[in-house]
Design a protein around this nucleic acid. Structure first.
Length: 554
RNA sequence: GCGCCUGUAGCUCAGCCGGAUAGAGCAACGGACUUCUAAUCCGUAGGUCGCAGGUUCGAAUCCUGCCAGGCGUACCA
């Protein structure tokens, strides 16, 4: 609707130029918005004020000139006015809003889709937790954000791939192996000293026990190094399998799981480093190999090969991102925990050094989650191995509530996640508020069927009966959806969907409490059923994007 | 020290590519169920948008400085 209006305004301004009512032919893209006050119309534009300096005319005069040349072939505009310092306010015909319902029913689950991505290949990499311990609640937030952003981009015409990067190489994997091996030795009655840097959680003991069940005492006969590495692979695989399971029950499916180790196995890391050597963008200093990231905007250079000959995590990450672009992704989005934000400049530097443009790389930082129970913080010490796992959270509050709550804040705001609140089935807990709309509508439809009052075949005359203010408000909310989708996608801010859905739900509940859908007048009933079915579709579409179910009964 | 994020109603937060009189939920107070699900709705009250300057016809929004909190500042990942 807004888009339609923008077109009308631009062509009116053009016509005004041609007819000489305006001096300059410079016409900016008008900002059209919904005013806060109903008295200011359904839509309002500031175009006249923005054009004032260019046109060397007072804004109100420009506004009048534009209005004079306004054509409205479909008759959607009921009234216009010039107001305040030069706003143009538009009051629309109710019939203009009615067309939205037709759009929704025609587009159905594609309502809100667009082609702004133009089929571009884009990759969203998220969660990517080290396979050294179970997923915790913070990974859940990253998962919800990443998954929803990917869904959004897909709906907006991008060719999206979801990827999980497995850090199955390097020191932390060895530490994992060592931790398991020590617990394993312990099971055989050996005196062990369990170092602080080893993983403390009980899951390590569980893995050691499984290892013992499968392999018996065989590992005790091997060299310690071999045993540790065997433990490492065994444990990493177990943990990874658990993470896959957790993510599946969280509703997150990845298109690809990418192993860091594979970059070493295939020699990719060396190839990249050698290429950098040839180009002279790495250098030796104090026995280490440094990458000149400071030439590409980083505050200082970074080590890629340590004094001891080991590559750093950064080195394989460079190779990994290079690989992404070589796979044909035009844009790459990484979802990281906010504690990694210091890493962005060097990653960006590496990507630019490899010849890619800054706009081809985005990082979504996700702030930490504070886990609470009834307002009291839940201890989350990884060192002691006590943390609330994602699995526990899903089991306790359910996937829908968890996913929805993760998206009730801007991703860069820290989030308090209260387990008690998440379980509550009240207005405190917005997921049920939104889902309730879907269930309520299903219930009305069931009732209509039971009474054989379920004629919903499209009838312009029936739709034309939707004139109550609450009905128009509801349609206006529905009309807003496509723009919410595209703006959430381009800003990569999935929480906008959540807020939108709460708002739409509120408009529906208000309507429901004031007007009866199953009216005695069959025609009005038909119109209203078409209205609420449209609401149901948009609620369902939105919840689906968030990975939240749309129940027909609650 | 430097960098990033955050600061808006008692609480939790939207709004931040500048727009007209500042938004929602919770909590408080008062109302609505013989009707399509009360997991709902309606009403009342609640504000120096951290502080101080600046840009602008217009600033919660942009710029500068300051204050407070969080995070980062590795030859860790």
């Amino acid at each position: 609707m807004k888009q339609k209006l923008i077109e009308l305004i631009v062509s009116a301004a053009r016509r005004a130029c041609e007819k000489g009512s305006l001096i300059s032919s410079q016409i900016p893209e008008p900002a059209v918005e919904e005013p806060k006050l109903d008295a200011h119309g359904d839509f309002s534009t500031n175009i006249a004020m923005v054009m004032a300096s260019n046109q060397k005319m007072p804004p109100r005069k420009i506004a009048e000139a534009i209005l004079e040349h306004l054509n409205d072939p479909d008759g959607i505009i009921a009234e216009t006015e010039v107001a305040g310092p030069g706003f143009i306010n538009f009051f629309l015909e109710k019939s203009a809003w009615h067309t939205i319902l037709r759009d929704i029913h025609d587009a159905d689950d594609r309502y809100g889709s667009s082609d702004i991505g133009k089929g571009k290949k884009i990759q969203v990499e998220f969660v990517s937790s080290n396979p050294t311990g179970p997923l915790h609640i913070g990974h859940g937030r990253g998962g919800a954000v990443g998954d929803t952003v990917a869904n959004l981009l897909s709906l907006c015409g991008y060719d999206v791939q979801k990827e999980y990067y497995i850090n199955d190489s390097g020191r932390q994997i060895r530490t994992l192996g060592q931790s398991v091996f020590l617990r394993y030795e312990e099971l055989y009655g050996q005196q062990i000293e369990f170092p602080q840097e080893c993983y403390q959680g009980d899951y390590i003991r569980d893995i050691a026990r499984e290892l013992k069940n499968q392999k018996g005492a065989a590992l005790l006969d091997q060299s310690e190094e071999n045993a540790i590495m065997e433990c490492a692979w065994f444990a990493a695989e177990k943990i990874l399998a658990g993470m896959r399971q957790d993510l599946t029950s969280f509703g997150v499916e990845f298109d690809r799981w990418f192993s860091e180790q594979s970059l070493y196995d295939s020699g990719r890391v060396d190839v990249i480093l050698n290429a950098f050597r040839k180009r002279g963008i790495v250098y030796e200093k104090q026995g280490a190999l440094w990458f000149k990231t400071s030439d590409f905007g980083d505050e200082k250079d970074r080590v890629v090969v340590k004094k001891d000959g080991q590559t750093t995590y950064f080195a394989s990450d460079i190779a990994y991102h290079q690989d992404k672009y070589e796979r044909g992704f035009e844009r790459v989005i990484d979802v990281w925990g906010a504690d990694h934000h210091g890493y962005i400049p060097r990653m960006r530097a590496a990507i630019e050094a490899s010849g890619h443009k800054p706009e081809q790389f985005d990082v979504i930082l996700v702030q930490l989650v504070n886990l609470l129970r009834g307002g009291q913080p839940v201890a989350m010490s990884t060192r002691a191995g006590e943390f609330e796992t994602l699995r526990d959270v899903i089991n306790e509050v359910g996937r829908d509530a968890a996913r929805f709550i993760f998206l009730t804040r801007h991703h860069e705001s820290a989030l308090d996640f209260d387990l008690e609140l998440a379980k509550q089935k009240t207005n405190d807990n917005p997921v049920y508020y939104v889902q309730y709309v879907h269930a309520r509508i299903s219930s009305i439809v069931r009732k209509a069927e039971a009474r054989s009052q379920n004629n919903t075949s499209w009838d312009d005359k029936a739709i034309a009966l939707l004139v109550e203010p609450e009905e128009i408000d509801l349609i206006k909310a529905l009309a807003r959806y496509p723009e919410i989708i595209s703006s959430s996608a381009t800003t990569m801010e999935p929480h906008r969907i959540t807020f939108y859905l709460m708002n739409l739900a509120s408009a529906f509940h208000t309507y429901y409490n004031k007007h009866r859908v199953l009216n005695d007048d069959p025609r009005l009933r038909c119109g209203r059923l078409n209205l609420i079915l449209a609401v149901q579709k948009v609620i369902r579409n939105g919840l689906t994007l968030l990975g939240v179910s749309a129940p027909t009964k609650m």
